[in-house]
Amino acid sequence: MWLIISDTHDNMYKMKEIEKIIERENITAVFHCGDFVAPFVLPYILKEGIEFYGVFGNNDGEKLLLNEKSGKRILPGPREIKIDNYNILMMHEPYSLNAAEKSGLYDFIFFGHTHEIVHRKTEKTIIVNPGESSGWLTNRATIALIDPHDKEVNIMEI
């Protein structure tokens, strides 16, 4: 099971809930689509035996330390990842979303920034914005769980 999160914005209360979800849902990979803000959130999502992929967001002020503390696993986006023959594109701001979606190159596209939940599927591609995991702007903290094998997406409120 994959966990897609974005826009955590240092909400430590929600990060504690996300950590419980990681333990409970047999998560094998965590994808963070940016706006961590500071490295304080990392211990809740960097877990031994669980893959981690991140991209920087526009509110990430401590990029050097985020990169260092993540073992250089947080990179500028858009970022292409290949896992188990799946082609994944991650980004924070969805500037290249339309082109990426139309390209047919990706099985999954994950993004953040807008704080709005997006879940749609084209002929080949599943596009997901998990919404904001912090809940600061919308009063609704959400994440996405994806079973990569059946490509089922579950948006979960935390």
Rank of each mutant, 00 (worst) to 15 (best):
E51R: 09
F36D: 03
G54F: 10
V55F: 01
I45N: 10
G54L: 06
E48W: 04
N59Q: 03
G71H: 00
E62A: 07
A38V: 06
V37K: 07
L42N: 11
N58S: 13
I50P: 07
I45L: 08
N58T: 11
G61R: 11
I50Q: 07
Y53Q: 02
K69G: 01
G71Y: 02
L66K: 02
V37H: 04
G57Y: 11
Y44E: 03
E48A: 10
G49V: 06
E68Y: 15
N58Q: 15
V37G: 05
E51S: 13
N67G: 14
D60Y: 14
E68C: 06
E51W: 00
S70H: 11
E62T: 12
Y53L: 00
L46Q: 02
S70E: 02
F40P: 03
V55W: 01
S70R: 05
L64A: 15
V41W: 08
L66A: 03
E62S: 05
G54P: 07
G54W: 03
K47W: 10
K47C: 09
D60L: 11
I74M: 01
L66G: 06
P39W: 01
G57D: 02
P39N: 04
G54C: 02
K69P: 03
D35C: 06
L46Y: 00
L46T: 02
G54H: 09
N59K: 04
L64V: 13
V55Y: 01
G71I: 03
F40C: 13
N59T: 12
E51T: 00
K47D: 06
I74G: 00
D60S: 13
R73A: 07
F36T: 00
V37M: 08
I45Q: 10
K69E: 14
V55A: 08
L64F: 15
K72G: 02
K63S: 04
I74S: 01
L46V: 02
F52G: 00
